[in-house]
């Protein structure tokens, strides 16, 4: 299961539409959840609309919360999305077996069995969550809370029986045209990682769309990672190195 969790506080203002990017993600089998973080003022009608649209296009959930509820919301969304993804897959199977019908149409005993399977799979299936953090100027005071919430999410994910990996990105980058910066690569543990976000340069631009597209790309590279790990197999590695040493 693959998820993107976008944390933002306003509208994108540069590059391709984030809604389109989210639709792409869903096409690739990645669910996109969006959290709008807001402590003072409002996100604005436009910002709210965009948040809702991104989540809809990405097949995920959205919510606007204050920093104090951030950790809880992230945990709840990730969990719900896992269950939903499993449920959708299971529902497909049910429809194939029973020829139509959703959960409420199943008689209670059958439903109990289905839900048992969903619960089991939700707990044990491998999960990947890419956190994409809007680090534009207005987000700066909230980043400490965001980091704390990410660590808290890792703690929840670690408790799962299935393997769970997390990666962290922020946008925009430092240089001109750099849309996305990888802060933490896929990991099952954040304990050793100090300060998730390196030096940040706060700029006004919010390239949400381009950033999402880059993360989808990173997910694709994730499949390349398999090749890497294959390359790193003992024996193989030496051979590869040999090639380069010359």
């Amino acid at each position: 299961m693959k998820q993107i969790l976008l944390i933002t506080d306003g509208c994108s203002n540069i590059g391709p539409s984030p809604v389109m990017a989210a639709a792409h993600a869903l096409q690739e089998g990645i669910t996109v959840n969006v959290i709008g973080v807001l402590d003072y003022g409002t996100i604005g009608e436009l910002g709210e609309l965009e948040i809702r649209e991104i989540a809809k296009a990405g097949g995920g959930l959205h919510q606007i919360v204050g920093t104090s509820q951030l950790a809880r919301t992230m945990q709840m969304m990730t969990r719900k999305t896992v269950v939903q993804t499993i449920q959708q897959a299971v529902n497909k199977e049910i429809r194939q077996i029973l020829g139509g019908g959703s959960l409420t149409e199943l008689p209670p005993e059958k439903r109990a069995q289905v839900v048992e399977v969903v619960d089991e799979l939700s707990e044990t299936s491998p999960l990947q969550v890419a956190l994409v953090i809007d680090a534009s100027a207005s987000m700066k005071p909230k980043l400490a809370a965001v980091e704390e919430a990410i660590r808290d999410l890792m703690l929840s994910l670690k408790a799962r029986a299935g393997t769970s990996r997390l990666s962290v990105y922020h946008f925009p980058g430092r240089g001109h045209g750099e849309d996305l910066v990888k802060d933490v690569d896929w990991t099952e543990n954040l304990d050793g990682v100090r300060g998730l976000f390196g030096r940040l340069q706060m700029k006004g631009a919010t390239p949400t769309g381009p950033a999402l597209l880059k993360v989808i790309d990173e997910y694709r590279c994730g499949t390349l990672e398999h090749n890497q790990s294959w390359r790193e197999l003992p024996g193989q590695e030496e051979g590869m190195l040999g090639d380069y040493v010359v």
Binding site: R72, R79, S156, K158
Partner: peptide, 24 residues
Amino acid sequence: PGRSVKQFTEWYDRGYWNAGSRTG
């Protein structure tokens, strides 16, 4: 036991106090 805790509330959560995992 051994599965992740499904629901928890900040104050009463072992993870919140950095005192251990959220595995039940």
